[in-house]
Design a binder for these strands. Sequence first.
DNA 1: TTGAAAGCGGTACCAG
DNA 2: CTGGTACCGCTTTCAA
Lengths: 340, 340
Amino acid sequence: MAKIHEVAKAAGVSISTVSYALSGKRPVAAETRRRIEAAVAELDYRPNAGARMLAGNRTHILAVTEPLRADTHAPTHMAFVLATAIAARRSDYDVLLLTDEQASAGMHRVAASGLVDGIIVLDVAPTDERVALSREIPTPTVFVGVPRDHEGLLCVDLDFERAADMAVEQLVAAGHRRIGLIGHAPPAYELSNFPPRVRDGFLAAAEARGARGEFAMLAGEGRSDLRARRAASGLLDSGVTALVLHCNDEAHNGVLEEIAARGMDIPGDVSVISVGSSFDTGGFATALSSVPLVPQESCDIAVELALQRIDGDDPAPGVRLIDPHFIDRGSVAPPRSVSE
Amino acid sequence: MAKIHEVAKAAGVSISTVSYALSGKRPVAAETRRRIEAAVAELDYRPNAGARMLAGNRTHILAVTEPLRADTHAPTHMAFVLATAIAARRSDYDVLLLTDEQASAGMHRVAASGLVDGIIVLDVAPTDERVALSREIPTPTVFVGVPRDHEGLLCVDLDFERAADMAVEQLVAAGHRRIGLIGHAPPAYELSNFPPRVRDGFLAAAEARGARGEFAMLAGEGRSDLRARRAASGLLDSGVTALVLHCNDEAHNGVLEEIAARGMDIPGDVSVISVGSSFDTGGFATALSSVPLVPQESCDIAVELALQRIDGDDPAPGVRLIDPHFIDRGSVAPPRSVSE
DNA sequence: TTGAAAGCGGTACCAG
DNA sequence: CTGGTACCGCTTTCAA
């Protein structure tokens, strides 16, 4: 582990010049810079992290808090953590993973010790203890998700209401008037912030667009594909001609199985749109049109906002809702009664 | 963010006494310690992370490298990351997540900058670029998994060979002589280190124990439960009376479905044991006996070894294989032909 | 365009 | 049992 003065000596300059050459915060003669860079490469020099934190008042680390309860959907959460890490690295930041304890304990710790420059809050609950904490600490904090009480907070999220509305819009435009929504398991509507937003957006959109919206959750115990089959079965029995899915990929499979088992065809007999899914909806037995949730979008913006606050630019607090977009994979068509 | 001298002033002592009171590296009078602790609590003091790194030569951070390729099984990998984080926190260490780039780039960076005291390597491939790197850097590194070339490395892992053997042992003891193994998809046998070990352990155990072992992978494309059904179907057609499963949970479901579809009963018509699964095998339609892979076990040991090396104790390099254990959930019984 | 030197906030040695 | 203080390696002002 070479140190800055070795680089300075090797390049025949002072250590401050080395520092400036690397940070770019002061102009350095081209020839001088060249020699410094050569020395850096030669010695495989990297500024010592601790020294940089202490002197520079910047750690180049972002904390990511993710409660990671046992019941959470691992692939989705993993995707957000990954997306955050990728966004952070693009700005030369590393990511410290906070999973532990009462969620806020770790957050408090890293803030008080100055271990991180900023904090990204994932898997936000409607009532989240990290909200109160974020107001007490000086460390810039950005929420990916919208807690109930978000006064003064910086939040980023997909516009789930609009996403649901967009799905309904497509289906109504195709002629559907009876539309079902298959959601998550009931606890998700208490513990997570976005399922209720999709549900409410869906019901409001149906009403506003002159259709009848019906909502079913994954009730009961066991495999979610089987629970989704039951939910789909109930909705299809009740006469819906189209389904909106806001659930995990396993549940998607269940719905497709139920439809296939009935000898029904997509989109001939029933139209289907997936909403807010962060997995690929093109890989199912039948490819599904969707209004996806793209983790990279939210996380890019979240990291960017955090960095702005770190750099002293002060983005106005408030909720940044990301515009959803519709991906057509051909799973929507007019209902039988209309097309015939 | 209070600093140590404020604590010292508040407690009426010198800063060195505060430092020693907190680190415990020197005896401090009970009364003095009390006053210091009161001041610390009052001011919500935490030593500045950067200063501590610089002066103390210890960052209290472990890096976790996890390539996190898109094709990896998220829940399993997540479980290992989580388990590592939990183990680290128990020793007052935080975890820096390295997912990015060519895997070794991040590792090199944090090692060269002294950002972390140690590195835990997850999702180890048979031929892993991180092996060579770990030999070049001074930062203590522990592998969770066993790369092909592990000369001089510290590795921790479940004894997969013995786990497979243990399953075969149970089945042979019950009277089975034709046993099938359902494994992962073919690429896993190139990219991951443990599937081949289970396969080889299984085949060797069958031979050694006088049974006929047959191996099937999840061939083809699409949902792994459907591919597992096909694999199970083939094996059952060929006359095996027992199945060993080493695949993801979705594939487990597929196998159970195939068995149910044939009107067969577990364990009446066919015995089943899950091997090396890190998910709960008691939650399937039929609870399955298993020889589980417990992430917490591997990660606890890995973190412990890393900390030992950090503290200068030098654990002998080599592979630490964890003894597997059999969990009986009643999915094993004598084969039909024998029991009748 | 460059250099010298004063910190940043702890840790741990050397005294007492 | 406690205090004083020399670093740790870098960033950044101040001067030249």
